[in-house]
Nucleic acid binder design. Sequence first.
DNA 1: CTATCTGCAAAGATTTTGCAGCGTA
DNA 2: TACGCTGCAAAATCTTTGCAGATAG
Lengths: 153, 153
Amino acid sequence: MEDKFLKSAGEELRRKGYKLTGPRLAIISYLAGEKGHPDMQEILEGLRSEYPAIGMATVYRTVDLLLELGILRAVTLKNNHLRYEVNRSGDHHHHLVCRGCGQIIEFGSCNFQLMAREIEKVTRFRIEEHSLEAYGLCPHCLPGSEDHSTEKI
Amino acid sequence: MEDKFLKSAGEELRRKGYKLTGPRLAIISYLAGEKGHPDMQEILEGLRSEYPAIGMATVYRTVDLLLELGILRAVTLKNNHLRYEVNRSGDHHHHLVCRGCGQIIEFGSCNFQLMAREIEKVTRFRIEEHSLEAYGLCPHCLPGSEDHSTEKI
DNA sequence: CTATCTGCAAAGATTTTGCAGCGTA
DNA sequence: TACGCTGCAAAATCTTTGCAGATAG
């Protein structure tokens, strides 16, 4: 399953005429195996163990390329910088961000399509994609619980 | 109406023990009178005419303060940096971002509340706020029209 | 009057770019 | 083999901080 995503990402690179290099594979497989939503710095650090020679410039260039190809997706969960996740097809989800511990929960249910059709009728805009984040408090951080601020972003 | 927002923003500052200074008023009234969604640089430039002596550091510090107080709100419309708008109470809206010309249309209809209650039941999260952006093509940029890339962000 | 706020300039981060050598196709 | 890709280091941006003088309350 992880294999399948990696394989198709590799094919997508090839198809568009890009080379399938070590850093590219390393970044894709790191993000594919990652539960959280790392930022550029965290991606670099996460790769160091498997790929000690990699440089920051390569991370920037590679992530930008993978975003363009739709292999990755950017999200702004903490309202001040960008984080990244793999863009598995058929995996339409949104984020629940806890303001207590920073934990992010993904949720899949989304009835925006109905709303979208309505908005398109009124505005004549063609809606192709959307993103939705909800902010609040997770069960641990609700008043009456202790702070468990060690969760994965 | 613009007056009312400015007045209540000023009161909010005072109430929390902050001073009502020139730069603060200038930034609030600039953003209150602005249709678009300027970023830090654009706020600075927009203020220069009315307040030529203002410095970038003050813009950063002031915008951060006004965000904390809830007088402003940050949005990431172009997926790579933050833009700001005034946070008028009772003005719950989202953004339609055109990938052709960059224009942003605000829309108000939003039935997320129903979805939120459902998600809260399942996750035990308490949802306090949410943000939603939809991306696509505006009527001008749909195939068959010319590019009018001069719209306000 | 006093504590806060501002502008400036310097420091610190973050992101981009140029280039010589490496590695994939 | 050839061209694209990488790592490094430098450059360009963007953001934060320290401080002395200005200013709101």
